[in-house]
């Protein structure tokens, strides 16, 4: 029987190893791939498509107001490039809707 403390250490240790292996592994594997043609187009497009995939379900889950808030945030970011102000605008749309409607 493994004691509770050892189990805690094991659970955290395994999670840490797995996470680190993925982080470092992705970078090291990519170095083995050619830096031109299809691979290059894939990895050049990747940051944007990952980020978009990360937010899309959350925006849709927030409903119509989520789409509106995301659009306001996106427009502000596009026009001003200011991350913090853009974030606040999106949150403001949600706060107003949730507290006053």
């Amino acid at each position: 029987m493994i004691s509770g403390d050892v189990k805690i250490g094991l659970a955290i240790g395994l999670a840490a190893v797995v996470t680190y292996a993925l982080r470092a592994g992705g970078l090291l594997l990519s170095e083995k791939l050619p830096d031109k043609g299809g691979f290059k187009r894939f990895f050049d497009a990747l940051p944007g498509t990952i980020l978009l995939s990360l937010v899309t379900p959350g925006i849709l889950a927030s409903g119509g107001i989520g789409v509106l808030a995301a659009a306001a945030t996106g427009l502000c970011a596009y026009r001003t490039g200011n991350l913090f102000v853009s974030m606040l605008i999106g949150m403001a749309v949600i706060i107003i809707q949730r507290n006053f409607f």
Binding site: G48, L51, L52, L54, V55, G58, I59, S62, G66, A69, A70, T73, G74, C76, A77, L83, S86, M87, L88, I89, G90, M91
Partner: peptide
């Protein structure tokens, strides 16, 4: 969501 949207 807002901050990642702005980053995207």
């Amino acid at each position: 969501i807002a901050v990642f949207t702005a980053l995207a």
